[in-house]
Design a protein around this nucleic acid. Structure first.
Length: 595
RNA sequence: GGCUCCUUAGCUCAACUGAAUAGAGCAUUUGACUACGGAUCAAAAGGUUACAGGUUUGAAUCCUGUAGGAGUCACCA
C-alpha cells in the first residue's frame, strides 16, 4: 500500500525492506506508523514533506484510512472505525483463532532427558516447561510435532546409586520408606558420595604417609577409592549383562520412573516417545566406520578414533575410545541419523542447557562433514541456567530447589491466597483442589516461561514467586473476571454473537487498541515459533490482559443501557477471553472460570 | 590462557528488522466509584542501557577496545 504510494509519487519501486511500518506508540495519535527516513533518497525531499505527500496519497486512495499526521519524519496513520469493526468481526467469527494453517512440516522436539540417579530440580523444570511449550507453539504454528525424551538410564552414576543402596539402604523401597522413588534413589547417590569422600580422605592420608606428594596423593586417592572401583566393576558387569546387576538396575530405575511420572504429571507435560540410552548407546558405531572410509575421521595407533576439527577453529574430538567403546558424541550422531531417517524430519530441536553449546556445534559440524545435508536442520534450543542468589545450583552442596517441593509450595500458596480471598462459593473440595493446582502451577510456569529462554534467570527462594503483577495468576484472574461478566450477561438473558457487530462504526481508543492487539495474535504465534520462544507469547498475553483490565476499569459493560452497545462489548471481551485461553494453552497454563 | 555468551531502574524482567521521550512488574509514596470480582486500576518517584571509541539522518541494538560475570575447552553424559 505505502509501497504503491512511493511508486506513484516518486516513480521508483521501493523494496519491502525500506517500508518500515510499526504500531504507533501510544503517546502519538494513530494506529500504524511509517518511518520515512529510508525513503528520502527517492523523494529527494525533507522528511516531513515526504511523509505529508505519502499520507495524502494514502488517504485519497484508501477508504480504510481515516486520517494521518506527521511528526518529525514519522507518518502516523489512523484507520477508520469501520475497518476495525471488520477486523474484530473477522476474529470473532474465526474458529480456533490463532491456530495457523498446516505447514506440512514434521518437527521433533527432544527435551527433559533426565538422569535416573537424582530427582528433578528447578533447572529441569525450566527445560521441561520450555520443551513442552515450544512443541505446543510449533503445533499451533501448523507443524506436526513429535515430543521425545531420551532418558539417561545407564552409566557409572547409576551404578553409584545402586551400590549405595546395597550398602546403606537395608532393602528400603519406596513403599517401605514412604519416599518417592526418584528421591530414594537420589538419596542413595548422595550416600555414595559421602562414602567415597571419606575413603578418598583416608587413602590420601595413607599415601602422604608413604611419602607421596600432595598433588599425586590426591589424584591417586580419587582414582583408587574402593567404592569407586566397586562401582566401575558394577558397570562392567552391567555391560556384560550380569543378571543380578541388571535386575537391581531395573528395579531401581522403575522406582525412578514412577517418581518422574508423578512430577511430569504434576507439571502437565508428556512425550510421544521415550528413548532409553541403554538401548541407544551403541548407536553411531557404524558411522565411525563410514567416517574412517571417507577420511573424515582418523584412527590412532592405540586404536582410538578422532575427528580433527582444528581447521574449523575447534578441537580434536574423540569418537571411539581405545577399548572400542563409544562416547556421548558418537551416540548422538547415530541417534540423529536414525531419527531423521525414521521420521523424515524437517527439523529437530534439542532443548538442552547452554553449557552444551560446544557439543552441539561439534555435532552439527561432524554430521556436515559426513555429508548429511540435514545437519542444518538441527537446532539447539540453548537455554540459560536458573541461578539462585548465591549462584549456581549445586546438588553436592545441597543448594538445589527440588521440583516436587517447589510444586507443592506453589500449591500451598495458591490455596492460602484463595481461601483468604474467599470467593470460592459453591465449589466442592475436589474442584477447589483442581483450582489450587491450576493457579499454583500457572504461577510457576508463567514465571519460568516469560523469560527469554536464552537468558540466565534468577530464582530467589526467599521471595518465591509472586501472584500479583506480571504473573500467571494475574492473567488467570483477568480471565475469571471476564467469565464472571459473561455469566451475568447470560443470567440476564443478553445474547450476542459476531453479528452483533453489524453496522458498528465507532470504537473508543482503548477498544481500538484491544482490537489491534487481538489482530496481532496469529503474527505473534508465527514470530514466536520462528524464534523458538514461548516467552513472546507469554508477554503478549500479559499485554492483552493488562489492556482488558484498563478497559474494564473505565468502561461499563453490563451497566451500559444501550443493549446493542452491551452486545458489542460482550463480543469484544469474549474474544479477549478466548485469545487469552489460546495463548496460555501454548504455555500449558489453564485459565479458570472462577478463582 | 583459547573460544562462546552475558552486563538495561534498588530487585526481577521487556524493547519486533537500528527509529520518536528505553517500557512493565515487585519494592517505596499517594489516590480509586454503594466493587459489572480490589489477585484490580490511576498516579508519583526511580536510567549516562557496565565503560571508552567508531559506523549511521538515527544505536540498548551493528563494529573495535576495556572492565566485570558465566559457560566450555574429558578416553563423563
Amino acid at each position: 500500500m505505502a509501497q504503491e504510494a512511493v511508486e506513484a509519487l516518486y516513480g521508483v519501486k521501493a523494496g519491502l525492506d525500506l517500508m518500515q511500518v510499526s504500531p504507533t506508540r501510544k503517546e502519538f495519535e494513530g494506529d500504524f506508523t511509517l518511518v520515512v527516513f529510508p525513503l528520502l533518497k527517492m523523494s529527494r525531499k525533507a522528511p516531513d514533506a515526504t511523509a505529508q505527500e505519502i499520507g495524502e496519497y494514502l488517504t485519497a486512495h484508501s477508504s480504510d484510512i481515516a486520517s494521518f499526521n506527521v511528526v518529525k519524519g514519522f507518518l502516523n496513520i489512523c484507520l477508520s472505525g469501520v475497518y476495525w469493526n471488520g477486523v474484530l468481526r473477522g476474529i470473532a467469527s474465526t474458529q480456533d483463532y490463532g491456530q495457523l494453517p498446516p505447514t506440512g512440516k514434521t518437527i521433533m522436539v527432544e527435551y527433559s532427558s533426565p538422569n535416573t540417579n537424582k530427582p528433578l530440580h528447578l533447572g529441569h523444570i525450566r527445560n521441561n516447561l520450555l520443551g513442552w511449550s515450544v512443541a505446543k507453539l510449533l503445533e499451533t504454528a501448523g507443524n506436526r510435532v513429535i515430543k521425545v525424551n531420551l532418558v539417561n538410564d545407564r552409566g557409572i552414576h547409576i551404578c553409584k546409586s545402586m551400590l549405595a543402596w546395597l550398602k546403606t539402604a537395608n532393602g528400603a523401597t519406596p513403599q517401605t520408606s514412604g519416599k518417592k522413588g526418584d528421591h530414594l534413589v537420589g538419596d542413595c547417590y548422595v550416600a555414595f558420595n559421602d562414602i567415597y569422600k571419606k575413603e578418598v580422605a583416608e587413602l590420601k592420608e595413607k599415601y602422604l604417609a608413604e611419602g607421596m606428594d600432595e598433588e599425586s596423593a590426591k589424584e591417586q586417592a580419587g582414582k583408587n577409592a574402593p567404592s569407586l572401583l566397586e562401582a566401575q566393576d558394577m558397570l562392567f558387569k552391567w555391560e556384560n549383562g550380569d543378571p543380578e546387576v541388571r535386575a537391581l538396575w531395573e528395579k531401581m530405575n522403575s522406582w525412578v520412573y514412577a517418581g518422574f511420572d508423578k512430577t511430569y504429571k504434576d507439571l502437565g507435560i508428556s512425550f510421544d516417545r521415550v528413548y532409553y540410552e541403554s538401548q541407544t548407546y551403541l548407536n553411531g558405531k557404524a558411522l565411525v566406520q563410514q567416517g574412517l572410509d571417507m577420511g573424515v575421521f582418523e584412527r590412532m595407533p592405540d586404536g582410538s578414533v578422532w575427528c580433527d576439527l582444528t581447521s574449523d577453529g575447534l578441537d580434536r574430538k574423540l569418537l571411539l575410545r581405545k577399548d572400542g567403546t563409544s562416547v556421548y558424541m558418537t551416540q548422538d550422531l547415530g541417534t540423529a541419523k536414525q531419527r531423521f531417517e525414521e521420521y523424515k524430519l524437517d527439523e529437530e530441536i534439542y532443548v538442552v542447557g547452554n553449557e552444551q553449546n560446544y557439543h552441539f556445534q561439534v555435532l552439527k559440524l561432524i554430521l556436515k562433514k559426513l555429508g548429511f545435508d540435514w545437519s542444518d536442520a538441527i537446532y539447539h534450543l540453548s537455554y540459560g541456567m536458573v541461578e539462585l542468589p548465591e549462584g549456581k545450583m549445586k546438588s553436592r552442596e545441597g543448594t538445589v530447589v527440588d521440583a516436587d517441593d517447589l510444586i507443592n509450595d506453589m500449591y500451598r500458596t495458591a490455596r492460602e491466597t484463595s481461601l483468604e480471598l474467599g470467593k470460592l462459593d459453591g465449589m466442592d473440595e475436589q474442584q477447589q483442589d483442581k483450582l489450587f493446582h491450576m493457579i499454583g502451577l500457572g504461577a510457576l510456569k508463567y514465571f519460568i516461561i516469560k523469560v527469554d529462554p536464552k537468558k540466565t534467570m534468577l530464582f530467589d527462594p526467599k521471595e518465591s514467586i509472586d501472584f500479583n503483577g506480571n504473573t500467571g495468576p494475574f492473567i488467570q484472574y483477568t480471565h475469571a473476571r471476564i467469565c464472571s461478566i459473561l455469566r451475568k450477561a447470560d443470567a440476564q438473558g443478553i445474547a450476542f454473537s459476531a453479528d452483533s457487530l453489524e453496522g458498528k462504526t465507532e470504537y473508543s481508543p482503548v477498544e481500538t487498541r484491544i482490537i489491534k492487539i487481538l489482530s496481532a495474535f496469529p503474527g505473534k504465534i508465527s514470530e514466536a515459533a520462528a524464534a523458538h520462544s514461548p516467552a513472546l507469547v507469554a508477554n503478549y498475553a500479559y499485554e492483552l490482559a493488562k489492556l482488558f483490565n484498563q478497559y474494564y476499569q473505565q468502561t461499563p459493560i453490563l451497566k451500559e443501557t444501550d443493549l446493542s452497545i452491551v452486545a458489542v462489548r460482550l463480543v469484544l471481551i469474549n474474544t479477549i477471553a478466548s485469545v487469552l485461553r489460546k495463548a496460555m494453552s501454548v504455555l500449558g497454563i489453564e485459565l479458570p472460570e472462577k478463582m
